[in-house]
């Protein structure tokens, strides 16, 4: 379901010495089924922004519409919003608390007061989706490896069957293999369920590989919003914000400067095809 942010502003500790304008006039339309990347350096406002999407933080100005309804209306249920916009925080394994994997994943759907059968179905579906094998269902979540814990925690949010899934740096601290596994699974879930996914990431290589739309935040406002190719063509401006483009983007720029007839690229695959095309012409 679509989310519309209309002139959203957020200021914390207003009127004190600690006042900070964390979000400045954010206007965004997030339609159904998009895979969106959200980038920005630490403190750019991206974490604040995603907590607005499920109502954990209330904007100090502007409006947010979920599926056409103003989420700040008195009769709009915040609790329901939180199940529809699933938010996976950074290091989500820190929220695990139950004695078994299954019980932990059940927490979300149980809070939704769903019938027992539905709770179970959603739980098993979610655990399966994140690739946790059956012999671990009754294991204590605290005995799992770092990557497994993280996936169980993500399943805990997936089990609520959110229409929008927001993940704050889901791969932080994982090794390359763990990172690829989680991102591949998220991409598969996005396709399978047709849900909207918003991926907050520090890795330009990762967002370039997976997302179709990229939003760049800096100093509390949206600086760029477009396809990864469009956004990364502003690599010089991104650098000024303390960000960068994927390494292959720089490769292509260098080659162009050398007079080689190649186009832009944001992934290794694209770069390879571009260079081979140019090379074969010679």
């Amino acid at each position: 379901m679509s989310i519309v942010l209309d002139h959203v502003n957020y200021t914390y500790s207003a009127g004190t010495a600690y006042e900070k304008h964390a979000l400045k006039d954010i206007n965004l339309v997030i339609p159904d089924g998009q895979f969106i990347g959200l980038i920005g350096h630490t403190g750019s406002g991206k974490s604040t922004l995603i907590q607005h999407l499920n109502g954990l933080i209330k904007a100090t100005g502007g409006a947010i519409y979920y599926d056409g309804h103003d989420i700040y209306d008195d009769d709009f249920s915040k609790k329901e919003l939180r199940t529809k916009v699933g938010l996976v925080f950074q290091y989500p394994e820190h929220q695990l608390f139950e004695t078994t994997v299954v019980k932990d994943v059940e927490f979300g759907p149980k809070n939704m007061k769903l019938p027992q059968l539905e709770v179970q179905m959603r739980t098993f579906e979610a655990i399966k989706m994140v690739g946790i094998s059956e012999e671990l269902y009754d294991a204590s979540p605290f005995e799992l490896s770092g990557g497994q814990k993280r996936r169980v925690a993500i399943a805990g949010v997936l089990a609520m069957k959110p229409e929008v899934l927001v993940l704050d740096e889901p791969t932080a601290g994982l090794d390359p293999m763990g990172r690829d596994e989680i991102l591949d699974q998220i991409a598969a879930i996005q396709k399978e369920r047709g849900i909207t996914v918003i991926l907050v990431s520090h890795s330009m290589e990762d967002v370039a590989k997976y997302v179709e739309r990229l939003i760049v935040m800096d100093h509390g406002s949206v600086q760029y919003d477009g396809t990864p190719k469009e956004v990364f063509s502003h690599y010089k401006e991104l650098e000024a914000m303390g960000l960068a483009a994927p390494q292959v983007t720089y490769v292509m720029e260098n080659l162009k400067a050398q007079g080689m007839n190649v186009g832009d690229a944001t992934t290794v695959e694209e770069a390879k095809n571009e260079i081979l095309r140019a090379w074969k012409k010679i």
């Binding site: 925080f89 989500p92 820190h94 805990g156």
Partner: peptide, 16 residues
């Protein structure tokens, strides 16, 4: 700060 984070994470899973 951690308490605050955990509370928010559990609220995101429907905790009240």
């Amino acid at each position: 700060e951690e308490t605050d984070k955990i509370m928010k994470a559990q609220q995101a899973r429907g905790a009240d």
